[in-house]
Simulated assay, not measured.
Amino acid sequence: MTSVPHAVLNNGVTIPRLGFGVFQIDDAETADAVLTALETGYRSIDTAAVYGNEAGVGRALADSGIPRDELFVTTKLWNDDQGYDAALTAFDASLDRLGLDQVDLYLIHWPTPGRDRYVDTWRALEKLLADGRTRAIGVSNFQPAHLQRLLDETGIVPAVNQIELHPGLQQAGPRDFHAQHDIATEAWSPLAQGALLQEETIREIAGRHGRTPAQVVLRWHLQIGNIVIPKSATPARIRENFDLFGFELSADDLHAMSALDRGMRTGPDPDTFD
């Protein structure tokens, strides 16, 4: 089985740099998709309360027979559950649905700055970490200004910021901020929901390497230092997205892909989404 490289988070916890995401996969299909991913070699599974499929993830983990200490499970707190007490209650509900007594990474899903609760919410995550109920805590979709406020007003630097990131939205500013503060960058929508797979540059690179455009984009993520979590419910594509370790992009390939950045979001703007 291919060995996936790991990143070491700022608290010493290690995370596979290639994981499996389950966004928009129906709960009834999630267990089969996750089992296929686990059989393929993925050991990191990324879900969220709002996806409505934590229970399906939990069923797959239980049915897989893989020891818990070989798995890395991430879930996320939804916007409506922000606030100290509400976050603790929501975390309990996520654990129940997953059938676990601990997750490896718990994230605040969005900053929702209009609600102004993410600092109190972060303090709840700090308690969950101190109590050993999660091995690491982080955020998702936070801009540098939101992160700076957490650094200024709380005691623990987020281990991870999971943000929309792909060749069309390369996020140089957030990635620089993360590097300065030892925050790992994790990419969601790493393929821009397929929008970049017809790009001539990517298709030319794929042809030279005998790979698919999706594999080229995912390999780009790994080579620039991202943690990446592609999602699919199609077994063949789940396996294709894992097959990234038999080739390497050249410096010229990476330079050509850097020119594709055009600020193209497929999801909401974190500064306004509530």
Rank of each mutant, 00 (worst) to 15 (best):
A48T: 07
A48I: 03
V50I: 15
G52C: 06
G52N: 06
N53T: 09
G56D: 01
G56M: 11
G58R: 00
G58M: 11
R59G: 01
A60V: 04
L61V: 14
A62N: 12
A62S: 14
D63I: 00
D63Q: 15
D63H: 13
S64Q: 09
P67Y: 01
L71W: 10
L71M: 13
F72T: 00
F72A: 01
T74M: 02
T75A: 08
T75K: 05
K76P: 00
K76I: 03
L77I: 13
L77V: 10
L77S: 07
W78P: 07
D80A: 14
D80I: 09
D80V: 09
G83P: 02
D85I: 02
A86V: 00
L88A: 10
L88Q: 11
T89F: 12
T89R: 15
T89S: 15
F91L: 12
D92I: 00
A93K: 15
A93G: 14
A93S: 15
A93L: 15
S94L: 11
S94M: 10
S94R: 11
L95W: 02
L95G: 00
R97V: 04
R97G: 05
R97H: 13
L98Q: 07
D101M: 09
Q102D: 04
V103T: 14
V103H: 03
V103E: 03
V103K: 04
V103C: 03
D104I: 08
D104A: 09
D104Q: 12
L105F: 11
L105V: 06
Y106D: 05
L107V: 09
L107H: 06
L107D: 10
W110T: 03
P111T: 06
P111K: 07
P113Y: 06
P113T: 05
P113S: 06
R115A: 15
R117N: 13
R117Y: 11
R117L: 15
Y118K: 00
V119W: 11
V119T: 11
D120T: 08
T121G: 08
W122V: 04
R123S: 03
L125R: 08
E126D: 08
K127R: 15
L128Q: 06
L129Q: 12
D131K: 05
D131R: 04
G132N: 02
G132Y: 01
T134D: 10
T134G: 10
T134F: 08
R135A: 15
R135H: 12
A136H: 00
I137E: 07
G138M: 04
V139H: 08
V139W: 02
S140V: 00
S140F: 01
N141E: 13
F142R: 03
F142C: 07
F142D: 09
Q143W: 14
Q143I: 04
Q143M: 15
Q143N: 13
P144N: 05
A145H: 14
A145L: 13
L147V: 02
L147N: 04
Q148I: 02
Q148N: 10
R149Y: 03
L150H: 03
E153Y: 03
T154Y: 05
T154R: 13
T154N: 06
G155I: 02
I156H: 11
I156C: 11
I156A: 10
V157A: 14
V157P: 03
P158F: 04
P158K: 03
A159L: 07
A159N: 13
V160D: 12
N161Q: 09
I163Y: 07
I163N: 14
I163R: 08
E164I: 11
P167H: 12
